[in-house]
Every structure is written in C-alpha cells, then in structure tokens.
C-alpha cells in the first residue's frame, strides 16, 4: 500500500478527532476551573496532589461513565448509587475474609455484571421503561446491600487502601486504565453498535445490528463500572457502608448531562461525560476549599444540573416541536 492510499484510508483517529467537536467549550470551562483550583491550592501540581485529586475524582468518573453508557443506549439508571453501595459492602465483607482481595474483587465484578445484565434483560427484552425498572432495582439492590452489611463496618485490607488511596497516584493510573477499557469496548462491533442502537433502534435492527445484545451488554458494563466504583470508595474509607453510594445516582446524571450526553440515546460522547465529572469534581473541591458548608453543595448541584439542561435550550434555536 503506498503512502497516498494509506493516507486516504486513515479512519480510526480521524473519526475519534471528529467526536471532539462541540466539546471545546466544555473543555475550556474545565481547564479554567482546574487553573482556579491549582491557583487556590498549589499543592495540586505535586505527585501527592495529583494522587489526592484523582482519588476524589475516580469514583465519580466511573459512575458518570456507567450512566453515560446507558444514556447513549437510550436508557438511564436510578440504581447507580445502590450499585456503588453494593460494591462497597461486598468488598468490605469479603476481602478480609477467606476469599482474599482477588476473590472479593471478582465477586464485586460478578455482582455488577450480573445485576446490570438482569436490569438490561428486563428493560430490553420486556420493553419496560428504564426509569421505573431501575428505580425498583435501586430498592432491591439497596436492600441487598443492607442485608449484607446492616450498618457501616467491615474491613478492607490496609495494604489495598494504601495502594489505591495512598500517596502514590495509583488512582490517576486507574482513570487511564478505565479510559483504555472504554476505548477497547467501543472498538468492538458490539460496543460501537451502542450508538446505532441508541439513536434509532428500529433502523439499526433492520441493518442487522444486534440491538438487544448491545443494549443488554451496556447495562452489564454499566453495573460493572458502578460496583467497581463502590470497591474503590470502600478502599478509600477502609470499610463498607450500605448507603454510601446514594449521592452518586444524581451526580452521575449531572456529570453526563453536563458533558452533553443526551437523554434520547446516541447523542454525546464518553469524553464529554468524563469532562463533566471532572468539572463537578473540581467544583466540589473548590467549594470545600473556599469554605462553603457541605449543604451548599446540594444547592449548587441542583442549580448546576438545571443550568446544564437549560443552556443548550438557550444557545441553540430549535424547532418548537
């Protein structure tokens, strides 16, 4: 193959670049907030600072991805928080026991994949509204978390906590690992089908896209990401808490919406959701730093979400119908 030919056949990276368009404004805002944070807290620019920041960002990044996958597939989940709690309590009750860290981690992943896939099957196969199914799932999963660990407790081996949430920037590497995992997922035929299945499932089905399989897989991967986020949260705090995940449901939606992922499926990109979670994470950190009381976060979050939904409405002139 000669040079000219191969130039015209370049596809993967140019296609990736094309998906960056429209994210520019968001990236500028994120960069501005990061700069502000670095100005307020110069320690951010050290290895330890990066490590600490990545530790606060990683769980939010993971649940935002978990939510964004479903939104790309034309769904949504209200069970993300419960799944995070489930992951946390499974980790806290098994890792110090006979199963060990590897066994516990495997159990966390299996639970995430299994519960996620079960939700997916119910939503996709039975054609039920995702909102209500995942609402019911949030009760069932949350109840299961309470059964496993009725009150905060359990233990995570100290070495694991030190590794994941210590002074070394392991969490930063994990962010990169999660992104690579997503890139690999999207480079599989079933992963890429997610976009087609989300935007126009009927047309995709007629074009031979395995729509149902793509969507169910999305639910399973979403569950996996959420319980793994729970594992990390447990490692960070050193123990499990059956209701620790609650705030993540709303935050994950907020981050995805901030990142431009649409509710109707097939619209937006994961990099947007990640940028959204980064923005949210930096904002929370900045607010802490400026001494805002924790309750102010609720107010700010409510306003941010409404603002994120409202902005595109004002910036783009749309059809009235």
């Amino acid at each position: 193959m000669n040079a000219i030919e191969s130039a015209s056949l370049r596809l993967y990276w140019p296609a990736q670049r094309q998906r960056n368009r429209g994210a520019g404004g968001l990236l500028i805002v994120v960069a501005a907030f990061l700069a502000l944070y670095a100005y307020l807290f110069p320690g951010l620019l050290s290895v330890g600072g990066v490590a600490k920041f990545a530790q606060s960002w990683l769980p939010l990044a993971m649940v935002s991805m978990a939510q964004a996958i479903l939104m790309l597939a034309g769904g949504v989940s209200l069970a993300i928080g419960a799944m995070v709690s489930l992951g946390a309590v499974i980790a806290a009750t098994t890792m110090a026991g006979p199963l060990g860290v590897a066994g516990g981690a495997a159990l966390v992943m299996i639970a995430g994949l299994g519960v996620g896939a079960a939700c997916g099957v119910i939503v996709v196969r039975l054609g039920l509204p995702a909102i209500v199914v995942t609402l019911a799932a949030s009760f069932i999963v949350g109840g299961a978390a309470l059964l496993i660990l009725p009150r905060p407790g359990g233990t995570i081996p100290a070495w694991l906590s030190d590794l994941l949430a210590g002074d070394k920037p392991v969490a930063a590497w994990l962010v990169i690992a999660v992104v690579v995992f997503w890139k690999l997922y999207l480079a599989t035929p079933l992963g890429l089908s997610l976009y087609a299945a989300g935007e126009n499932p009927d047309a995709a089905y007629r074009a031979g896209v395995p729509v149902d399989a793509a969507r169910i897989l999305a639910y399973a991967v979403s569950g996996l990401l959420a319980t793994c986020a729970g594992l990390f949260v447990a490692a960070k705090t050193g123990s499990g808490d059956p209701v620790i995940g609650e705030a993540f449901t709303l935050n994950s939606i907020a981050a995805a919406v901030l990142g431009g992922v649409g509710f109707l499926g097939g619209k937006g990109a994961m990099r947007g959701a990640l940028a959204g979670s980064l923005l949210l994470s930096v904002m929370i950190n900045v607010m802490y730093f400026l001494g805002f009381p924790p309750v102010a976060h609720y107010i700010a979050q409510g306003l941010i979400i409404i603002g994120a939904v409202a902005l595109p409405e004002f910036s783009a002139r749309r059809r009235a119908l």
């Binding site: 056949l9 596809l11 993967y12 140019p14 296609a15 094309q18 998906r19 690999l184 480079a187 599989t188 035929p189 890429l192 089908s193 976009y195 087609a196 935007e199 126009n200 009927d202 047309a203 995709a204 007629r206 074009a207 031979g208 896209v209 097939g266 619209k267 937006g268 990109a269």
Partner: peptide, 29 residues
C-alpha cells in the same frame, strides 16, 4: 427512511451490522 447514526463516521455507518473484525476488535483498516 434514513436509518443512519449521525454521530458515527461515514465508514462506521456503512459497516455497522457487518463490521470486519480482528482479534475481536473492529478491523478499522
């Protein structure tokens, strides 16, 4: 009725549903 996915590239749209694969991944080349 057009059933294309607006966010994906022309090539990905053409191939979707019958994507060539290598080692389980899409063979973009």
């Amino acid at each position: 009725e057009l059933g294309l996915t607006t966010q994906l590239s022309i090539a990905e749209n053409i191939g979707i549903g019958a994507l060539p694969r290598r080692y389980g991944l899409i063979d973009y080349r």
